[in-house]
Design a protein around this nucleic acid. Structure first.
Length: 1055
RNA sequence: GGGCGAUUAGCUCAGUUGGCUAGAGCGUCUCGUUUACACCGAGAAGGCCGGGGGUUCAAGUCCCUCAUCGCCCACCA
């Protein structure tokens, strides 16, 4: 069977195109257990997911349940730039675990899915593709065509993303899937913009932005990365206009960007160079006093530099400073423009010549100077990165060309003093990888002051809590700067800014057209001489005002503007919907630390503004997934592994289990990536084929390390991909998950083979066998700890607790101990009922982590033993669907708790391990049964007595004697385990025993002396907590007893 | 430059408010194909808890300091 299945979802057709599921896993078997010997996820996952969908298990709608029993998460909407990688798998697995856990606790649980249009990122990806495939720019294509192409891209990747989420088992309410450019969300965006605008929180202003000359858009600071580039430092002379006698004829300045001099509108010198040097020196001397020996030389050098400057530069600077105050001017060479010499503190007397050229339109600091000194701003850059008309004869040249010519021309005029080599950090656009230019342009801003303060308050007063707590600092520090938020982007893909301009309209025209329209707000912009018309509800027609033409702003909004509304725009806001009332605020937001500021902070901020309430109670920040070289996974680097590949190889549960296991609070997850050879299946580590300094995306062909055949990577061109098969990627790390699932599968198989005619009876716990009471008590503790770990977002801890219980206690001990009873070698007791109960609880505990396999096993368990539990002690609901069954209670099953049995069984386990160790050391064949004596005080023997059968079964002992007095039998192996002395008959000889006991004695001696010295220390006994001292005393007693026993054996042996 | 984090077994990581002999998984070694599972079982070896100081009866854990690595923010005529 090979039927890929399609599924219908309102408004969406999702297609699991990457994996074809079979449904032939013996689902209909009735009479005998016929599970495959090895768990095969592919026969289970598709069918199980379909079953959940068919039964609407993921859907949520408002009902009577009170707020405490509701649980809501909105997904961090993945960008539709591309398919998801393992970082997303981590993020969404963690959400799904919480969602499923709460759903099983009977909460009304909503996980709302969706995707983000990711303005600049998506447009860049599509534009790049069109450039390489069709050799066309977006301008050649036109706005409408480009946008329609991006919609096609979006449709394709949204589908892909949602199917990836389904493949890893996400239990989102798919009927509520949203996209940040949906009509509903567009309305929310407009309402927010409108309200901000009306309240004066949005303004339009000239600001320096990072201009991406390739994409021709402003990019946000966080979309700019810095790269060290080898560059030069050019020293120029600017002539002084009409120098008086005794005055310098030229002022020297230095620059790394000579082309910007065309836009210079001043040269600055410090207003008080001497005072500034004095102040700096004073500070340095203060630092020197406190400095460590290592820092000293550097500070001393700086102080010397100041001294040198005093003689070399200061006189001139003082003179220039006076000239500046006197209003003197310079001639800007090349442009032959008169520019002022200004006094401003930005000029650092310690740097360069002490004078600095000021280009307000092209440098953030110069911009500030321009503001302070009221300088004109001369923009010399065109949006496409060429010099504009303000650059005079340089107009039309690209910036690099301009630079060359400027330097050459300056040199020709004798104004070039020197060229110094210098490494500089140049900002590059994250999207286009080209250098960004600071560029003065009209942009829209949100005034952050009060909005930011409110968002800060929500965290400082604890309404919103961060887990781990320290991330609150990141959030608060960033918001504390209250920097205005530039929300306009010169892009075509996004929410269009709902502003129209009319520069011909009169007051009366505006009044007549919109005067009584509450959904329109108008402001007259004096500076630009134009009306700004903001429309809340709909597009305005260009002829909305008779006789005038309205023009809509060309820009779109920053993607984060719509993302910021996500927690409520997805629930119907701005309408006051029932959903909104019921589900808002959400319970927790789960995301990674890099968008705490951009996204989390802004959601809180708009949530408070629009809804009057925080958007979520908790923010859980999880680790990041790194590749084998320690770099974060990302699409652009090409080290992102498709979770679908991992699901193919190991199964979704294995993926989820492994992820949960690795998800600790502090540590990023390092995940070495391997290529799976499509020819032979051999794994080739990515690090072994990616050269130093290169990214995986740079590699398109790989030769398999084993079969030597070649294959393509996912980054190869289409041509290579048709020529060579494409390798999937994975990581061996997921083996732990696969192994776990297989173990679970097989332990369940074992149970199913033995669960015919399981009873459902009243059981007196105290009358049960010790191993029954032990496993039940262990179970209860495990349930408690698992629940409390999850409540604190300690996923890794939760999974570890379950694993230890399942693997170590249940499989390795309890199941082994049920065998004699199930096989009729021992009275059966309530074995089956308890076995079924434990398995039931394990499946429930694991369901959020590994939903597919547990659901499948649940089906089988339900068929074999529909009624499970311990009447009157641990009563269970019955549910056809595990994912809707009750999660084991947060407090465990108190009636099953039994500290005494836990302690005494522990002792039995130690004895068994002691005997096993002896057998191993003495090379006793595993099948061979041995005779053993245990010598101890009566009190200890009383504890062991009821558990003799455990020791016998688990240690391969056929005859066991518990004795208060015993001698080492000839040729017995001996060991001391706490208060027990154990003799295993006929497995050793005297010589070997002597050596072993001597070794043991010396180890006991070491410990003994440390305990003794502790106890003889009066300060210890006086200061330590009484229970600590008491424990230490007990330890001394135990050790002394062990020592005596071992010494006794040795002595007799020597005789 | 400012902030945050990390440094524990060959590898990847746990280690809750200081308190028994510092743990797990993988890998390695020995033994075992037993009727749930070799994607398994039994056992073992393997650690100056990055270095140095300090506080304390007691430090992997708290404080200071140095070193190395990572991330975030700011800035660089």
């Amino acid at each position: 069977m090979n039927a890929c299945f399609l599924r219908k979802i309102p408004g969406l057709t999702l297609h699991l195109d990457l994996q074809c599921y079979r449904n032939d896993a013996g689902v209909t078997m009735q009479d005998h257990v016929d599970l495959e010997k090895t768990y095969n996820p592919q026969t289970v996952e598709g069918a199980t997911y379909q079953k959940w969908l068919d039964n609407s298990c993921f859907a949520s709608k408002p009902d009577e349940r009170p707020r405490a029993q509701r649980f809501t998460i909105v997904i961090p909407p993945p960008n539709v730039t591309g398919a998801l990688h393992l970082g997303h798998a981590l993020n969404n697995t963690l959400q799904d675990i919480l969602i499923r856990w709460h759903r099983m606790q009977g909460h009304n649980t909503l996980w709302l899915p969706g995707t983000d249009h990711a303005g600049i990122a998506t447009q860049a990806v599509v534009e790049k593709r069109i450039r390489s495939n069709e050799n066309k720019t977006r301008h050649e294509l036109g706005r409408d065509e480009l946008v329609s192409r991006i919609w096609q891209w979006k449709d394709q990747y949204e589908k892909r993303i949602l199917s990836q989420l389904q493949l890893i088992g996400c239990s989102c309410d798919w009927s509520r899937t949203r996209f940040t450019l949906d009509d509903g969300l567009a309305r929310a965006v407009r309402h927010t913009f409108f309200e901000f605008f009306k309240q004066g929180l949005i303004f339009r202003g000239k600001r320096l932005v990072n201009w991406d000359t390739q994409l021709q858009t402003a990019v946000a600071d966080d979309e700019v990365y810095h790269e060290t580039v080898k560059g030069y430092f050019w020293h120029f002379n600017y002539p002084v206009k009409d120098p008086k006698p005794g005055e310098p004829t030229h002022v020297a300045i230095a620059t790394t960007r000579p082309e910007t001099m065309l836009g210079d509108t001043a040269v600055a010198v410090h207003p008080d160079p001497e005072g500034d040097l004095n102040r700096t020196e004073k500070e340095l001397r203060l630092r020197l006093e406190k400095a460590s020996a290592k820092e000293r030389p550097e500070i001393e050098t700086q102080i010397e530099t100041i001294a040198e400057r005093r003689s070399s530069h200061l006189p001139l600077l003082k003179q220039l400073s006076e000239m500046a105050k006197d209003g003197r001017t310079l001639i800007l060479p090349l442009m032959e423009r008169e520019i002022p010499l200004v006094a401003d503190i930005w000029a650092d007397p310690l740097k360069g010549s002490g004078c600095v050229k000021i280009t307000p339109a092209h440098d953030p600091n110069d911009y500030e100077v321009g503001q302070r000194c009221d300088l004109p701003m001369t923009n010399v850059l065109n949006p496409d990165g060429t010099t504009n008309a303000n650059g005079g004869e340089y107009e039309g040249l690209s910036f690099p060309e301009t630079r060359k010519k400027v330097v050459a021309d300056m040199d020709a005029r004798g104004l070039l003093i020197e060229i110094e080599e210098k490494e500089t950090e140049i900002g590059h656009s994250d999207r286009s990888k080209t250098a960004v230019e600071p560029y003065l342009s009209d942009q829209w801003f949100v005034r952050m002051g009060n909005l930011a303060q409110a968002a800060m308050d929500a965290v400082t007063d604890g309404r919103v809590r961060f887990f781990p707590e320290r991330y609150a600092k990141t959030y608060l520090d960033w918001l504390g700067e209250k920097r205005d938020w530039c929300i306009s982007r010169q892009l075509w893909w996004g929410h269009r800014i709902p502003i129209w301009y009319c520069n011909t309209c009169s007051n009366e025209d505006i009044e007549a057209a919109f005067g009584d329209n509450p959904t329109i707000h108008t402001v007259f912009d004096e500076e630009q001489g134009t009306w700004l018309i903001c429309s809340q509800e709909e597009d305005l027609r260009s002829d909305a005002i008779p006789g005038h033409t309205l023009q809509q702003d060309e820009d779109v909004l920053d993607t984060w503007f719509s993302s910021a509304l996500w927690p409520y725009s997805t629930l119907g806001w701005p309408d006051r919907t029932a959903d909104l009332d019921y589900y808002y605020p959400g319970s927790v937001l789960i995301t990674s630390r890099d968008i705490i500021t951009n996204w989390v902070a802004r959601m809180v901020l708009t949530g408070l503004y629009n809804m009057g309430e925080i958007p979520f109670d908790h923010v859980y920040i999880h680790a990041k997934i790194l590749d084998g070289r320690g770099e974060t996974m990302s699409k652009s680097k090409g080290n992102g592994v498709d979770p679908v590949d991992v699901v193919h190889v190991y199964g979704a549960d294995a993926l989820r289990y492994s992820i949960a296991d690795m998800a600790t609070d502090t540590q990023d997850v390092r995940m070495p990536v391997d290529y799976i050879c499509p020819h032979c299946g051999h794994l080739t580590p990515q690090t072994s084929v990616v050269p130093n300094g290169k990214q995986p995306a740079d590699v398109s062909r790989v030769t398999c390390g084993k079969c030597k055949q070649r294959f393509a990577t996912q980054w190869a061109s289409d041509a290579i991909k048709t020529e060579l098969p494409v390798a999937k990627e994975t990581s061996e790390k997921f083996e732990i998950g696969r192994n776990f699932c297989n173990k679970l599968w097989n332990s369940a198989r074992f149970a199913f083979m033995n669960l015919q005619d399981t009873g459902y009876e009243q059981i007196e716990i105290a009358t049960l066998l010790p191993e029954d009471r032990w496993i039940l008590s262990k179970l209860s503790a495990t349930i408690r700890e698992c629940n409390s770990s999850l409540a604190q977002y300690h996923y890794s801890q939760a999974i570890k607790v379950i694993r230890d219980f399942f693997w170590d206690s249940f499989c390795d001990w309890y199941i082994e101990l049920t065998k004699p009873r199930l096989y009729g070698e021992q009275a059966a007791g309530h074995t089956k009922q308890i076995l079924a109960f434990i398995l039931d609880q394990i499946l429930r505990l694991l369901s959020p982590f590994a939903p597919f396999i547990t659901e499948r096993l649940w089906e089988e368990l339900n068929r074999l033993t529909p009624q499970r539990g311990l009447p009157g002690v641990a009563e269970l609901d019955s549910s056809n669907m595990l994912m809707l069954a009750a999660y084991p209670p947060a407090d465990g099953w108190p009636q099953l708790d039994d500290e005494t049995i836990l302690a005494s069984f522990e002792r039995v386990q130690e004895a068994v391990r002691g005997i096993r160790d002896l057998r191993n050391k003495c090379a006793v064949p595993p099948k061979e049964r041995v005779t053993a004596d245990i010598k101890a005080e009566q009190e200890q023997l009383n504890l062991l007595e009821p558990q003799q059968h455990v020791i016998k079964a688990m240690a391969g002992v056929d005859r066991l004697a518990l004795l208060t007095e015993a001698e080492r039998p000839k040729n017995a192996g001996t060991t001391v385990v706490g208060p027990l002395q154990i003799f295993v008959h006929n497995i050793s000889d005297d010589e070997a025993e002597c050596a072993r006991i001597e070794k043991e004695l010396s180890s006991i001696e070491n410990r003994l002396s440390s305990v003794k010295s502790k106890l003889s220390n009066e300060k210890f006994t006086a200061n330590a907590k009484p229970e600590i001292v008491e424990a230490e005393r007990q330890r001394l007693v135990d050790l002394e007893r062990s020592y005596a026993a071992a010494a006794d054996s040795l002595e007799k042996l020597r005789k």
